[in-house]
């Protein structure tokens, strides 16, 4: 099962490698990891998606908590958070296909961010599931390049993950 974990860490040298190294070392597979600074510049937030069982995620949570630069770890509850990822796709697209492509972008709420005579680059911010639908719709056109950030997540409602 896929678990989304949000981690607050001190914004120190080497923390990203400490976190990713720890998870890998303990035998867990990171599906995605996104990191950025928070409203407090001394603190970064990581959103990590791991694929494992319930015992596994409990271990990941406890092990992450043991790292000294870790401030807070939270395994997000299904349905209690919003998760989004940013995807950019460069597809083959000639002048004749352009209208169809624009239509598709429109339906999926994607944006066209670059265009050439033979290609088109689209940007989508959405859930992982819708991102995958989007990619599968584009595949027949010929995907030249695909860039995904991995998801960032935030809790629903007034709750925050804070120290």
């Amino acid at each position: 099962m896929r678990y989304t974990i949000t981690v607050l860490v001190q914004n120190h040298y080497g923390v990203l490698s400490k976190v990713s190294g720890l998870i890998a070392r303990r035998g867990f597979n990171i599906e995605s990891l996104a990191v950025g600074v928070t409203e407090n510049p001394d603190i970064s937030r990581m959103t990590i998606v791991v694929d494992c069982d319930e015992n596994g995620v409990e271990q990941v949570e406890k092990q992450l908590n043991k790292l000294i630069p870790t401030i807070k770890v939270r395994v997000l509850k299904e349905g209690a958070y919003i998760a989004r990822e940013l995807t950019m796709v460069k597809v083959s697209c000639n002048a004749k296909q352009r209208a169809e492509m624009m239509n598709l972008a429109d339906i999926m709420h994607a944006r066209i961010i670059d265009v050439t005579a033979t290609s088109l680059t689209l940007e989508l911010t959405d859930t992982t599931a819708r991102t995958e639908t989007f990619i599968s719709l584009l595949r027949p056109f010929g995907i030249k390049e695909l860039v995904r950030t991995g998801i960032s997540a935030i809790e629903l409602g007034v709750n925050t993950t804070k120290k």
Partner: peptide, 14 residues
Amino acid sequence: ITGACEPFTKHSYL
């Protein structure tokens, strides 16, 4: 050495 000892130290400083 801090990198190499990451799995073997409780914490490390450079």
